[in-house]
Amino acid sequence: MDAWRETVGDALSANVYFGAVASIFCYGIGVYLQKRYRFILFNPILIGIILVVVLLKVFRIDFASYDEGASHLNYLLTPATVALAIPLYKQFEALKKNWKVTLASICVGVLANCAVVYITAKLFDLERVYYVTCLTKSITTAIGMGVTEELGGDVTIAVVMIILSGICGAVFGEKTLKLFHVTDPMAQGLAIGTASHAIGTSKALEMGETVGASSGLAIVVTGVLTVVLAPFFAGLIG
């Protein structure tokens, strides 16, 4: 049994297409499960990640060998984010008309995020380094890394927090918003983008063009606002 597993594992590790094929296949199973059963945890990203991790563990494949093929998918992340300009352009008239609402509600979101982090930090008596690290959890990864570093936080933890927050938003966002009667597509998009950056936005795009466009806009505005506001909140715990 073990010898067999090792042989398969070695064959998979050596194949440059393995990483990409495994990712697409596992993600595809997630898409199928989501369509077939309307269970909240059957989210394609979540299922994709879990199945890939299980696959790597079962066949004892190290991340580097997987990433050799899979990193070609990450390569497309920048172009895909650039493409968010398309829904933004199409919906721009509506967003422009509501620019005050957009700005005001994203401000509320950024402040709420910082306040929640501050309260949690006080409750758990967190050290400053962890507190400032958590402040950046709702902005897009690259901005979050930069801000965390500037504030004297732990960049590795920041990345984990940011990505997991994004996935949480993508998985539970739609249901949570429905539960709290946030039904307006623009409000939904702003909410998802402000709380869970690009990962949430990838889900928002599936909910509709208006939701996707306002979520995409929220990533940019939230990022900039956090760059400005986070240092002030960071100063609250010395």
Binding site: C168, L177, F180, V182, A187
Partner: peptide, 19 residues
């Protein structure tokens, strides 16, 4: 706590404010 409830609280606050 922050990843789950912090994220969803931020989301609801933003969405409710926008609406």
């Amino acid at each position: 706590l922050l990843i789950i409830f912090g994220t969803l609280a931020t989301m609801v606050a933003t969405g409710a404010a926008a609406q």
